[in-house]
């Protein structure tokens, strides 16, 4: 059986290739919303922050650091998704001329 490290590296390798292929197809028109969206997605690190803050034997240091980490990650999640949507709503085709 492969170890956790090896499995992790497989996942990393495959996810990187998927990422490169998918992102390459994104139109330059949307590069700014793309960046705010990936930013929100990578704030999934909030999971790690929850686990360290919520551990049964968490020390005060862990709780304080975890608290700050959750706050910043949640800020990113909330503002990232909302501002991406706000930007995307602005991209419109021509409204008046419908041939």
């Amino acid at each position: 059986m492969p170890s956790n490290l090896e499995l992790g590296l497989y996942v990393f390798m495959l996810a990187t290739f998927v990422g490169l292929e998918v992102i390459r197809k994104v139109s330059p028109l949307l590069h700014t919303p793309l960046m705010s969206l990936t930013n929100a997605i990578s704030a999934i690190s909030v999971v790690g922050a929850i686990l360290i803050t919520g551990a049964a034997g968490a020390t005060t240091l862990s709780k304080v650091l975890g608290f700050i980490a959750i706050t910043s990650a949640v800020t990113n999640i909330v503002s990232g998704f909302l501002i991406t949507d706000r930007m995307l709503k602005m991209f419109k085709r021509r409204p008046e001329e419908k041939k």
């Binding site: 992790g8 996942v11 996810a15 990187t16 990422g19 590069h31 793309l34 990578s42």
Partner: peptide, 23 residues
């Protein structure tokens, strides 16, 4: 993700990393 052995973090991080790299 590697430190916590959490594959979801590895995937999301790799997606963000490759996006930044391409840009």
């Amino acid at each position: 993700g590697f430190a916590l052995d959490n594959k979801l973090l590895i995937i999301a991080g790799a997606l963000d990393g490759s996006s930044g790299l391409i840009l």
